[in-house]
Amino acid sequence: MIELYVLLVAMLAAAVVAIEIKDLLAAAVSMGMVGFSVAILFILVQAPDLAIVQIVVEILAVVFFAAVILRTTHDDSTVQLRITSRMILPAVLYGIFVLMFVAVMTSVLRELPVFGSPLMRVAGNYLAVGLNQSGAANLVTAIVLDFRAYDTIGEAVVLFTAVVGVLTIVRQIGRKADAGEEHA
């Protein structure tokens, strides 16, 4: 499983680049590298459905980022090396959160099943009766569309709401002209 660890390191490095680089387009591309690393990791942990969806979603996400950045500005003018007084309070709060997070996670990681041997208390039943009850050879599809179909309906509602929000915000007509004049 050495490739898994190499990919994890590459993913974390790309994440640091995406957060710290000055050019926003390069940041979006680095975020794409994180997403594609995640897609390959999905393949390595035997989740081909997730890998397919992740690749499609990642391409779309990078295209959205690129569209917005090309329409606005490349340059992240807020990148600075010196520490200002404005950064102190968020930094302290973040530090406190990280300490609490690490403290909780050390106990959580001890409770989690070891990597490579899941509990499968719920999924064992799905594996046993999934094919007969749902007729789907792909058990992930059987769970999404049969055993947990109500979850899927809820998620579809969230998806629909987000899409309606995007369409409402980016449409061209509306009160844009006069509202923009007032505050210009």
Partner: peptide, 12 residues
């Protein structure tokens, strides 16, 4: 098989 339940949750 690997556990299909987390995969189904993550898919959506």
């Amino acid at each position: 098989f690997v556990d299909p339940l987390p995969q189904a949750l993550v898919l959506t």
